[in-house]
Design a protein around this nucleic acid. Sequence first.
DNA 1: AAAGTTGGTTACTTTAAAGTGCCTACTTTA
DNA 2: TAAAGTAGGCACTTTAAAGTAACCAACTTT
Lengths: 117, 117
Amino acid sequence: MKTVLPPSCPMEALLRVITGPWTIYILWVLSEQGPQRFGAIKRLVPGISTRILTERLRMLEHAGVVWREQAMTIPPAVTYGLTERGAELRGMLDTLGAIARRWEDEGIFAEVRSGTE
Amino acid sequence: MKTVLPPSCPMEALLRVITGPWTIYILWVLSEQGPQRFGAIKRLVPGISTRILTERLRMLEHAGVVWREQAMTIPPAVTYGLTERGAELRGMLDTLGAIARRWEDEGIFAEVRSGTE
DNA sequence: AAAGTTGGTTACTTTAAAGTGCCTACTTTA
DNA sequence: TAAAGTAGGCACTTTAAAGTAACCAACTTT
């Protein structure tokens, strides 16, 4: 999603971090289930490919939202979890989720879907 | 961004409404400048094409975030504005924007960009 | 009489991103 | 002995979305 930022806008930058397929769901999993290993996350996010999961976790790590801890064993055991910044994001996502659920109850999204398909 | 919704998730649905290039900026313009006519919005969102602007406004209208009022004059005069639901979204976007600005001050996004380019 | 205004639509092209499949190197287990 | 699990990497294909450009109706102004 390479957006031509209309003006330089921190909001667009933040949205680039949290949007895109799977991202929110990955954060949700780490938030609800606590720190998890790569394979566990993959199982908790059914359908995601390893490539995309790796990419998203790396991006979230760069953004300081997720930490990564690698045990140098063989095979390696890599664990991911939410940082403080991630938790901060989580509170906001809860608000977002509350609005989303209210809208869903009001039947908004069905219309949106039918309007864009 | 046709997302394979992992589980049925209202949050993903909401994000489909507010994300994508220009969308947030359009909402911001309507929020700050009040209701505007099509041409005015186009001028206030420099660089956007009429096709994308039309598509976004239609989508936001379907989502009940924006209202549309067409005067059947010639040439037609079409005005768009934020609905109550749009205003509700606006409060949330303010929160989002506050977090975004704080992160920007902490220099997060530069890293994210360099990490994904 | 020609050009401009307004709010689009339609068709075509381009591109960024997501998906898919195959590979590693080592260990444990069946 | 071979299969499966671990955490990815790499190359190729596919596709959805954005960009680009041309066109339209109908009326007004120059």
